[in-house]
């Protein structure tokens, strides 16, 4: 019985992971094929006609892909840094200070989690327009600087840190800012890493917002940049498009693999203080 349930469980997980992996496999395999092979009507995992060299070469010659990626790095790191600067004090206050309206404020944070970013896109667009900030790095960064998800995540993690440690820090002569920087943040590093990865993935992959607020190619982020292959006069060049998609996925993979352990600590329920 136990073996059966184990097999069943793994079968279920396997199905799920295959379902998740298929798009990536197709992306990778398409990036290796020539245009003719792609449109050949039959699907094979391995390329019938080797097109990888041409495809990848085309990505680097036809597109300023490195510039796009640099833009991506600038935008995502700025967003993350500002998000952290905003979220940490908010989360600390919500988790550890007792003040009037704390519950209400925290509820506001929860409600904000429910608002889809698309819903407020147009008002934000108008706002940026009236400040003359459209079509710039600022337009990409500013709307995302306050992350309610970040506040929520960090607040949950801070809640798990015993009050005694904070009191001890106060007795040891720390002010609240010192406590936050010297005690809370180092202890909450797993949660911060998890949030960092979530934030990085979300904004690196974001297609919707850059598409709305940018016109100038020099600010283009990777997903918007590779869409160039789509608007080509000759139709959609799938091979180079997929090759570019593969390339821009690499930084994500590297970051995730590097921070995998901390990420899992951060998102698992047992995370906290021993």
């Amino acid at each position: 019985m136990k073996i059966f349930s184990g097999i069943f469980r793994h079968l279920l997980l396997l199905t799920g992971s295959v379902f998740m992996l298929i798009p990536f496999v197709v992306m990778l395999s398409t990036s290796l094929k020539s245009q003719a092979d792609i449109f050949s009507g039959t699907f094979s995992l391995l390329p019938g006609e080797w097109g990888a060299t041409a495809n990848y070469l085309q990505v680097f010659t036809k597109l300023p892909i490195l510039d796009f990626m640099l833009n991506g790095v600038i935008v995502t790191t700025s967003i993350f840094l500002i998000q952290v600067i905003v979220a940490l004090p908010c989360a600390y206050a919500l988790a550890k200070f007792h003040f009037k309206g704390r519950k209400l404020l925290f509820n506001c944070v929860l409600w904000c989690l429910l608002i889809p970013p698309q819903a407020v896109a147009i008002p934000v667009f108008m706002e940026l327009y009236s400040f003359g900030m459209l079509n710039s790095y600022a337009a990409l960064i500013v709307p995302w600087t306050i992350s309610v998800l970040g506040i929520f995540l960090m607040r949950q993690f801070f809640m798990a840190i015993p009050d005694d440690i904070i009191d001890a820090a106060r007795m040891d002569g720390m002010g609240e800012v010192s406590i936050l920087i010297r005690i809370m943040v180092p202890m909450a590093l797993p949660a911060l890493t998890a949030f960092g990865i979530l934030s990085f993935i979300a904004h690196w992959n974001d297609f919707f917002w850059p598409l709305i607020c940018l016109q100038d190619v020099k600010y283009f982020t990777p997903p918007l940049g590779i869409a160039y292959f789509k608007t080509d006069d000759s139709g959609i060049s799938y091979g180079p498009l997929m090759a570019a998609a593969c390339i821009i996925t690499i930084p994500l993979l590297i970051t995730f693999l590097a921070a995998r352990k901390k990420f899992m600590q951060g998102v698992s329920i047992q995370a906290g203080v021993k």
């Binding site: 015993p162 005694d164 440690i165 009191d167 001890a168 820090a169 202890m187």
Partner: peptide, 8 residues
């Protein structure tokens, strides 16, 4: 403190 409250 009872829990010692050492910085982990």
């Amino acid at each position: 403190f009872q829990s010692y409250a050492l910085y982990p």
